[in-house]
Design a protein around this nucleic acid. Structure first.
Lengths: 152, 152
DNA sequence: CGAATATCGGACTAAAATAGTCCTATTAAA
DNA sequence: TTTAATAGGACTATTTTAGTCCGATATTCG
């Protein structure tokens, strides 16, 4: 559930590739070959990442892209947001006023709360962490707190 | 980003409505009127929730639906999963073997990690919490830990 | 028993979001 | 001046999602 778009997925793979050699300029064709994706698709993703400030672009011959800052300073939240936009709320939460019961709809406020929790989770994972080969075991690293009434 | 489907959104509204009178039987037309949604749509959502075990259904005249267990024992994760399926991974993670670089693709493992974090967040919010009118202030209740290298 | 009222399951259609491609302009190096 | 690269956006195709509808089944009640 709640899966990211394909483009956002590509973005993480591409960014991870760039994170391995943070200062090297890479062009779209180059990265396409590495990721086994079509050049126009990679190009589209790179353009968006650059426009959002996550990449620096150099135009002209021998141009290309590189990270705009250190991998440790780039989060998954930023990468996904660059491709999908900052939205992530229900329609009800996005443009208020449409829903007739809104004024007493406490569900809405809770959606905001949930979104905050998800966003916080994505902000906790940096590109640097993504580039490392699974530093810690996948499960059990944080004690699992299930189904408490408050908490998020 | 990462927004739930409309159906899943409807589900939360409907479930929240049911949670206010956990033992009362409600039929689809009834809930449609309350939520301002079309009857067939509400019906579709109810059927899925019932099939996933979150609702008990009674057929026949004077039939309807009610929660299968206490609101405190139903999580947002369960509701969303009922409508969208348990998926939530990238394609790469879903059917392994397709991606040529998979064996050395450490991005994949990290996606699993991220998913775990998101799922955990959704498991932390119960229907009971959703039914209450915003028990605590929206922001600042949990200290925000940003961008650390491990942590999720 | 028969009529009325529900859910059940799935097929089907319509609409919207997403992916992917392509074209033209601009920039910089050789 | 030619070549190699990004910038931006238009466009199309595809896939996903929403929404509707229908026939079957179950239950109540007169």
């Amino acid at each position: 559930m709640l899966r990211p778009s394909k483009l956002a997925d590509y973005a993480t793979v591409i960014m991870t590739g760039l994170a391995r050699e943070p200062d090297k300029l890479r062009n779209a064709a180059d990265l396409a070959a590495e990721t086994h994706l079509a050049v126009p698709t990679v190009s589209k993703v790179l353009k968006r990442l650059a426009r959002e400030g996550l990449l620096v672009s150099i135009r002209g011959a021998h141009g290309g892209y590189k990270l705009s800052r250190a991998p440790a300073d780039i989060t998954m939240a930023q990468i996904i947001a660059a491709l999908e936009g900052p939205l992530g709320l229900t329609d009800c939460a996005a443009h208020n006023g449409r829903c007739g019961i809104e004024s007493r709809c406490n569900v809405r406020g809770n959606w905001l709360r949930i979104n905050l929790a998800v966003q916080r989770a994505l902000e906790g994972v940096t590109l640097a962490a993504m580039a490392e080969p699974l530093p810690t075991p996948l499960a059990g690293e944080v004690p699992l707190r299930r189904a408490q009434t408050q908490g998020v």
